[in-house]
């Protein structure tokens, strides 16, 4: 386990996403409409585009360039142009702070 602090819990809006860079890697960290937190790889698997620039609707993140859609809770790619799933990471919230396990 390798927990890394991302941000304060209220620094991500409900049903939104932020970009988080750490150790040369980039992640996307989400807050769902149900107020739960999730994390995935930060770049779309189709082209190297930051998913955090895209729109979160319910449990879907949409790539800002090609509208590739992923379920950010499971990482599942929802069909062309994206066919490769996103890797997801465990997230925890402690003392109003969001952490992800980047191992």
């Amino acid at each position: 386990m390798s927990w890394v602090r991302v941000c304060g819990a209220d620094e991500i809006d409900e049903e939104d996403v932020i970009r988080f860079d750490h150790g040369g890697r980039t992640f996307a960290v989400y807050r769902s409409p149900e107020n739960e937190y999730y994390a995935t790889d930060g770049l779309c698997t189709h082209e190297k585009v930051h998913l955090a620039d895209g729109l979160v609707m319910d449990d879907i993140i949409e790539c800002p360039k090609h509208n590739g859609r992923f379920n950010y809770k499971t990482g599942e790619a929802k069909g062309a142009p994206v066919c490769i799933n996103l890797r997801t990471y465990p997230v925890k919230v402690e003392a109003d702070t969001v952490y992800i396990d980047i191992d």
Binding site: H50, A52, D53, G54, L55, E62, P64, K65
Partner: peptide, 11 residues
């Protein structure tokens, strides 16, 4: 920037 425009245009 892509980050400023993409989601607003999508909405």
């Amino acid at each position: 920037s892509l980050g400023r425009v993409a989601r607003e245009v999508r909405v």
